[in-house]
Amino acid sequence: MKLFIIYQTDIWKSKASRVCFGVFDTRTKVIDSAKWQELYNHNSEVVVLEVTLNLFEEV
């Protein structure tokens, strides 16, 4: 099963500036939530990571 983690980060997409905003089961829910929460703006970017459930790996 695939899960999608949504992060808001700076415009350079550095890992140090990531703030997790949720975990979702479909990409459409991620996009809808990011638009509803207004995570997109001129000072930030949104990063969506696709991960597999029950798999041990570095994110």
Rank of each mutant, 00 (worst) to 15 (best):
V51Y: 04
I31N: 13
T28A: 12
D25V: 09
K13G: 06
V47R: 05
E50G: 04
I11D: 07
S17C: 14
Y7Q: 02
E57R: 04
I6E: 01
R27G: 14
S44A: 03
S17W: 12
A34R: 07
Y7W: 02
I11Q: 05
K13Q: 04
V46H: 05
K15I: 14
K13F: 01
S17T: 15
L3N: 01
L3K: 01
D10A: 07
V51A: 10
K29V: 10
F21C: 13
I31Q: 12
F24C: 13
L39V: 12
E45G: 06
W36F: 14
I5M: 02
I11C: 05
N43C: 05
V23W: 01
E57A: 08
T9W: 03
S33H: 14
V19G: 08
H42D: 15
V47T: 09
N54Y: 00
Y7I: 01
E38N: 11
R18D: 10
V46W: 00
D10K: 02
Q8V: 06
V47Q: 07
R27I: 15
H42K: 07
I31E: 14
F21D: 13
K15F: 10
I6W: 01
E38A: 10
V46E: 08
K13D: 06
E58V: 07
I6R: 00
V46N: 06
Q37G: 11
V30P: 08
D32H: 13
Y40S: 11
R18K: 06
V59K: 03
E58C: 05
N54K: 00
V30G: 11
W36E: 15
E45W: 02
F24P: 11
R27E: 15
D25G: 10
L3Y: 00
V46F: 01
E45S: 08
M1Y: 03
D32C: 13
L49P: 07
K13C: 04
K2H: 01
K2M: 00
I31L: 11
T28L: 09
S44I: 01
W36V: 13
L3A: 03
F24A: 12
H42I: 07
K2Q: 02
Q8I: 05
H42N: 11
V51L: 07
V47Y: 02
G22A: 09
C20T: 13
F4L: 03
T28N: 14
F56Y: 09
V30A: 12
T52W: 03
N41W: 01
K2G: 05
L49I: 09
M1D: 06
S33N: 14
K29T: 12
K15S: 15
V19F: 00
R27K: 14
D32W: 10
F56I: 10
F21T: 13
K29E: 14
K13T: 04
T9R: 05
V19Q: 08
C20H: 10
R18S: 08
N43A: 07
W12H: 04
D32F: 11
W12P: 01
E45K: 05
K2L: 00
W36G: 14
R18C: 05
K13L: 00
W12C: 03
S14H: 07
N41F: 02
I5G: 02
T9D: 11
L49W: 03
E58Q: 06
T52M: 00
T52C: 00
L49F: 05
